[in-house]
Amino acid sequence: MRIGIGLPTSTPGATGHGLLDWARRADEGPFSSLGVVDRMVYDSYDPLVALAAAAGVTTRLTLCTMIAISPIRRTAVLAKQAASVDAISGGRLVLGVSIGARRDDYEAAGAQYAGRGAQLSRQLAELRDIWDDEQVGPRPSSSGGPVLLVGGGSGASFQRAARHADGYVHGGGPPRAFASAADKARAAWVEAGRPGEPTLWGQSYFSLTGGGAGDAYMRDYYAFTGGFVERIAAGLLTTPEAIREQIRGYADAGCEELVLLPATSDPAELDALADVVA
C-alpha cells in the first residue's frame, strides 16, 4: 500500500504560500500522493486550482481529489480543468468524484440537488467522451483520460464506480468500514462485467502536532452532520501508534493508497507524519 498526504486546503490558516511550501515538502517526503478535499460553502480552496498550483512545485506526487463534488460543476468545464491539471502535471492527476453531502454546496453553485446521483453518472460517461474529443484540449496524457475514482456509500455509488470509473475512493473510517466498502466495490465490479479489479483508495484525518486544533477543525468542518460529528471527530488519528495501526488495517483490507489528510495547516504535521511513515 502507498501512503499519500493531504494538502491542507480547508484547514484554518491555509495560505497560498503555505500550500505551495507544503506541496514542495510532500514531494520531497516519503509520500506517494497529495490529496485535496472539496467544499463549496466553506473557507477552503478549489481542489483543482490547488492541485494545479501544486503541480507547478512538485515533480513526482500523484495529485488526487478526494473527492471533488462533481455535479456542482459543469461537465465540460470540469473535464477541461482536469485535463489541464493532468497535462500540466505530466499525467499525475487522479480525479475522485462524488455527490458530496451538503445541499448548500449545490445551492451556492446554482446546481440542482435533486437527481445529483444520476447527474454524476452522466458526467462520468461524458468526461471520458470529452477527454477523447479532439476539439476540446488539452489532450490527457493517457488514453481515456486521468484515473477516475468514485466515492459514496450507497449501492448506487458502488455501481457507478463499477460502470464508469477505474475504482473506488472510500470516505474514511476504521479499517473494518473500508474493508466492507471495498468488498462491495469489488462485487459491483464483477456484476458490471468489468475485467480486472477496481483501484481502491482510502483516507483518514490525522493531527500529530496540532493539539486541540485538529479536533476543533473536525468539529467545524463536519458540523453539518449533526449527531455524527462526534463520531467523525473520534476517528481523528492523533498518535503515531494510531496511524501505524490504521495503515496496517487498511493494507490488510486491500487498500492501494491511503491518503492521510491533515486536520491543521501546521507544517510540522507533515514532518511528524513523514517520521511515522518513513
Binding site: G155, A156, Q159, R163
Partner: peptide, 10 residues
Amino acid sequence: GTDAGAGDYR
C-alpha cells in the same frame, strides 16, 4: 443504464 437498480452488494 441509469443509477436505479443497484444491488446492496452485501
